[in-house]
Nucleic acid binder design. Sequence first.
DNA 1: GTTGTGTTCAACCGAGAGGTTGAGTAAGGA
DNA 2: TCCTTACTCAACCTCTCGGTTGAACACAAC
Lengths: 118, 118
Amino acid sequence: MDDQLSRVFSALADPIRRDMVARLAVGDATVNELAEPYSVTVQAVSKHLKVLEDAGLVSRSKQAQRRPVHLEAEVFDLMTKWIERYRQEAEQRYQRLDAVLAEMTEQPEQTRVEGEAS
Amino acid sequence: MDDQLSRVFSALADPIRRDMVARLAVGDATVNELAEPYSVTVQAVSKHLKVLEDAGLVSRSKQAQRRPVHLEAEVFDLMTKWIERYRQEAEQRYQRLDAVLAEMTEQPEQTRVEGEAS
DNA sequence: GTTGTGTTCAACCGAGAGGTTGAGTAAGGA
DNA sequence: TCCTTACTCAACCTCTCGGTTGAACACAAC
């Protein structure tokens, strides 16, 4: 869990943290505001925010005693880039496979159609 | 960790598993082939594959004693949709903020930054 | 049959995640 | 000054994760 990509994916693997991101997309919020909807302590929420912050997904400023949390959009690009890369490769392979299968339709010997996965 | 989105993010939070996905984007592979480049046992790799399978990222078919692993592209859409949604919202907010700040550049009194929801 | 290969299952272990409670810090308000 | 609010830090607990080893299963090949 050293690289940023791992931290980002790991951060968003938790439903509460994803929910917080959704909430922060609407506007900045304080720790207490973020904690309100959940049945966990404020301390737990503070920990969640630290995880999001370490992943670069949010930043925390200082406003009197408040620590308004702000969503950082840039990091999302890191993920989308990674995802898009392999999604496209996989889809291209899929289309190539379809073409190959179409070619050998007349000779259906033990075709072993992928996917399948029992 | 019940919903699929959590499983998918969690699965991709591990560098080895991301690497496997990258490898499978090029073409299907068996467990032993996938295990080769890493300094872990085949059993560990089998476990990783189970995680990826539970997330719907790969499927395993049956070929004699082999279990060729195949990358499933569809699930990536689930992630990209989620990500794009909040990235766009956040970016829009950012642009709105820029506009607001540009408007009040001449009057810099304790700006008390944007949206703020609350 | 027996043996070899590819893979999974089961039990275990150490580290870390997510939660708690309790105390500590920092600022505003009486 | 003292109290309250907003938050973090520290210690602890439990459960999961990623790894191991050892055994079992499924099929091929001899």
